[in-house]
Computed example of a mutant assay.
Amino acid sequence: MSTDLQIWQLVLHASLLVKGVMALLLLASIASWMIIFNKRQILARAQSAADAFEEKFWSGTDLGKLHENISGAHRVTNGMERIFEAGFSEFDRLRHQGRMSPSAMVEGAQRAMRIALTRETEDLEHRLNFLATVGSTSPYIGLFGTVWGIMTSFQALANVNQATIAMVAPGISEALVATAMGLFAAIPAVIGFNRFSNQVDRLEVRYDNFKEELSSILERYAHGIGQE
């Protein structure tokens, strides 16, 4: 309790600029933790959805029926479902136009799936740049508050004939709290950014592999149609 009380006293007795730095770092830390918890849930759901869709896709279900079930549900798709729906819808549209070569139908489906994959990756990466910014800048912002606080403490000794460590220690302690808060905001943000970036990269590779597999299936199907 005494330690907590001393820290609060140091914060309250800090200069106005140092208080502003501390408030900024506190807000950045709160925002980072909100993004971390939210992104953790989003990526966990994306992983589970990918597992469930792959199991359904490779179960031998007819792709036309699978597409009808997804498009007929009238809901927003994401992940592999989003890529599959985009590719198969474009392939089906081009197939019904007639006079389209098999390669043209496959290329159209691939183009639609690339766009869907890009949008899906952008959704997964959303707000990760904020974590990177907090992780890289918070220590320097805290250091700025510390330097300013130390400068203020030493300037207060300008008119003192005999300076002692006891006279500057409180001011330096107040300033060092800003550095501690900078590290407190930066460390979770850096850990969260690295972990989530790795998960997004693995999901992106998984989506890209699925796109290539679906392209191969559609290519075989398109050539089968052309031979009929």
Rank of each mutant, 00 (worst) to 15 (best):
T77Q: 15
N78Q: 14
N78D: 13
N78P: 02
G79N: 00
E81G: 11
F84N: 01
E85A: 12
E90P: 00
F91V: 14
H96Y: 09
Q97W: 04
S101N: 13
S101Y: 09
P102C: 04
S103Y: 12
S103H: 14
A104E: 15
M105A: 15
E107F: 02
E107R: 10
G108A: 08
A112V: 07
M113Y: 13
I115Q: 13
R119D: 09
E120L: 04
T121H: 10
D123W: 06
L124C: 02
L124A: 07
E125V: 00
E125T: 04
H126V: 02
H126A: 13
R127H: 14
N129R: 11
A132L: 09
T133Y: 04
V134S: 08
S136F: 07
S136R: 08
P139A: 13
Y140L: 13
G142A: 06
L143G: 11
F144S: 07
G145W: 11
G145V: 12
G149A: 08
M151R: 09
F154N: 08
Q155W: 03
Q155E: 10
Q155H: 13
A156S: 07
A156I: 00
L157R: 05
N159D: 15
A163Y: 08
G171E: 10
I172G: 07
S173V: 01
L176Q: 09
L176D: 06
L176N: 08
A178T: 10
A178R: 08
T179K: 05
M181T: 10
L183T: 02
A186W: 11
A189S: 15
V190K: 03
I191K: 02
G192K: 04
G192F: 09
F193L: 05
R195G: 05
F196Q: 00
S197P: 04
S197V: 05
N198V: 12
N198Y: 11
Q199T: 07
D201C: 06
R202V: 09
V205Y: 08
R206P: 03
Y207V: 03
F210C: 01
F210L: 02
E212N: 07
